[in-house]
Design a protein around this nucleic acid. Sequence first.
DNA 1: ATAATAACTAAGCAGTTGCTTAGATTTAAC
DNA 2: GTTAAATCTAAGCAACTGCTTAGTTATTAT
Lengths: 187, 187
Amino acid sequence: MARKKQYNETEVIEKAMRLFWRNGYESTSVRMLEKEMGINQFSIYASFKNKEGVFLESIKLYNTQIKAITDTLEKSNNGVVGIKDYFLDFLDFSREGAIFKGCLVTNTVNEINEDANPVIMAALKRFSLNIRALFVRNLKQDDQRGVEEIEAQADYLMNALLGLSISSKVFNEEQLKSIIKITFLHL
Amino acid sequence: MARKKQYNETEVIEKAMRLFWRNGYESTSVRMLEKEMGINQFSIYASFKNKEGVFLESIKLYNTQIKAITDTLEKSNNGVVGIKDYFLDFLDFSREGAIFKGCLVTNTVNEINEDANPVIMAALKRFSLNIRALFVRNLKQDDQRGVEEIEAQADYLMNALLGLSISSKVFNEEQLKSIIKITFLHL
DNA sequence: ATAATAACTAAGCAGTTGCTTAGATTTAAC
DNA sequence: GTTAAATCTAAGCAACTGCTTAGTTATTAT
């Protein structure tokens, strides 16, 4: 009947994701995506509808790639220690050679405008809430905390994690590990 | 000789700053600035050279406005307590009605590309280092910490402050105050 | 009043944005 | 081999970006 696609959609999304991760959403143009993904604009729009579609697929891929870490957290039964391991694992995950790229989700949350991109913002918030839920779950394991304390500590940890996404672009690895260490000192 | 300017440069920068604060640097267009500042593009370029110039003036104004808070920190002689007060003061400072806008500097650091905007990035880094230096100064006041511990704690506090800039757009006031409380629990 | 000068308005510049469309090319079923 | 459908390329769309320029208007010193 017809011709076959000359590219693998997962492969080109992998490349798109890396570009978004480095540059952010708005400052990654469709022309840049075209070059990086190695396919024509027409093919991009045929496969993913629009730029937003490419990004949403990138987030999905990001999710499956980071799953190795979240799975470890989800399966851990050692409370706060598990969360701390997650922080360290994440730092490793976000490394590209010598530099850290932060979290694709956090980077984008901080960049885009909620009113202008409600669909993207919703996807990003869903992602964040999942992480927070895992923190709550692990905090409960130590069971010496009240419900309110757990919620407050989960917010505290989210704040530290969000901060780490920015810090990782400013501080060096030693400093980052030291920040994580202090963050968990009194939990 | 000639006509007088029909606008006050400080007044229009105040309006520009608010716009940058809400929207970020890149997504604030010169047309938007034109509307918000209430003057023509020609006047903008005549007074401030270019968009970058408008932003640099906005940062200057931001600096003088936040000075009330940093001054309090600078004059405080109560160590960690002074820093905590700074966190709370900053939260208040970044409020606009019911919502929090985060820190103009942090927002922009996270948004712009260093290579594309080296001048702006330099100004932003200068600002951040000033804050960190104040943290170090105050941590020394308690004098029971070693130099290394002070540096590490200053990084930890910067991380929390950076996080707060993002968190303030996601969490409510009660949560934010709780985050600050926990951040300082063991210092 | 006149002349000089600065500030104003508004149109327009080239370059970029996300997205579409026309037309050529490849593939596969009959 | 013909036909039909999906893919490809490349040109082009309107809207936007930061910035400039030509020409008008207002203000001041003479």
